[in-house]
């Protein structure tokens, strides 16, 4: 039974499985290194003062509060645009009888999620920021940055909403219709309400994704050293502050960049981990996952 050939085949199998395990560990090396350097370089910088103080000239111990506030306002603005539109798209795509437009829209939403963020920035610059040509001519502003983020958020949120709505059992919909409710009421009052937990999960995932984007903000929100004041003024954000400071020759600013990176990654990982745990918990309770 245990011929030499069998022994060889088993040996080969074990070796290759071992190699696979090795590649997995190899993939973890950059992750561990990155999280380690983030913690090592950022921990000392992140103090209550750092989180609550605004920008100050080099040497005067400034903070990143203005960038945190800027990021939050940009994300809020992006959500205001992307959430209604994404929900509407989700409802349309989850229809029981998909139209040709639904297939096209779904495909193009997926394709849109692959468009480089920097190009979204150039696009928004050309139609919103620029003062001449075929443009709204608003200038560098929070509005422009929020729109750019909304365009990146839309495909992710729309597709997760679609899955969330699709997961509601058909019987629920039919029960509503059988009671004589108009279809829009069934969708808005029954299906959407039942899908709310999954929709929020999708919202948080898409916010976590968008919160780290700097590329679309470079020529839209532009960055600023002040607190966000007006939707029509340039505004700072965590990823962009990080990018700007990392290129500065001052040690203090580089240290602040590490601090901002730590804050940013902590927020994003917190959201991701919370949704992961939440989805597992729901899954273990037998609910469908979106």
């Amino acid at each position: 039974m245990n011929s030499r050939r069998t022994i060889y085949r088993r040996f080969k199998s074990r070796t290759i499985l071992g190699l696979m395990a090795f590649t997995f560990l190899l993939a973890l090396v950059p992750l561990v290194s990155l999280l380690w350097t983030l913690a090592a370089n950022g921990a000392a910088t992140v103090t209550p003062h750092f989180l609550t103080a605004s920008w100050a000239p080099v040497g005067e111990n400034g903070g990143i509060a203005h960038a945190i506030a800027g990021s939050l306002s940009l994300l809020a603005l992006a959500s205001v645009v992307a959430v209604p539109l994404g929900l509407a798209n989700g409802i349309y795509l989850a229809r029981r009888a998909p139209t040709r437009l639904a297939h096209l829209t779904r495909l193009l939403l997926d394709v849109t999620s692959g468009i480089p963020a920097i190009i979204v920035g150039v696009f928004i610059y050309t139609v919103v920021v620029r003062r001449e040509g075929f443009s709204l001519g608003i200038g560098f502003s929070m509005v422009a940055g929020g729109l750019a983020l909304a365009m990146i958020m839309l495909p992710i949120f729309a597709r997760t909403s679609e899955e969330a709505i699709r997961a509601i059992p058909r019987a629920v919909e039919e029960a509503g219709l059988a009671l004589g409710l108009p279809r829009r009421r069934v969708i808005l009052r029954i299906i959407l309400r039942a899908a709310v937990p999954s929709i929020f999960t999708g919202l948080f995932l898409s916010l976590a994704r968008v919160a780290g984007e700097a590329a679309p903000l470079l020529f839209t929100a532009f960055g600023s050293n002040d607190w966000p004041a007006s939707p029509l003024k340039p505004v700072s954000s965590l990823p962009q502050l990080l990018f700007d400071y990392a290129r500065q020759p001052f040690d203090e600013l580089v240290r602040q960049a590490w601090g901002a990176a730590l804050v940013l990654v902590a927020i994003i990982l917190l959201i991701r981990t919370a949704t992961f745990v939440y989805l597992r918990w729901r899954y273990s309770k037998g609910a469908s996952i979106a």
């Binding site: 993939a27 950059p30 992750l31 290194s33 990155l34 350097t37 983030l38 976590a208 994704r209 919160a211 780290g212 984007e213 700097a214 590329a215 990823p239 962009q240 990080l242 990018f243 990392a246 960049a257 590490w258 990176a261 940013l264 990654v265 994003i268 990982l269 991701r272």
Partner: peptide
């Protein structure tokens, strides 16, 4: 592994 995908691009740049 998917944590690798959630780290923002600028943070990769800094690292």
């Amino acid at each position: 592994i998917e944590i690798l995908a959630t780290i923002p691009s600028v943070v990769y740049g800094l690292w």
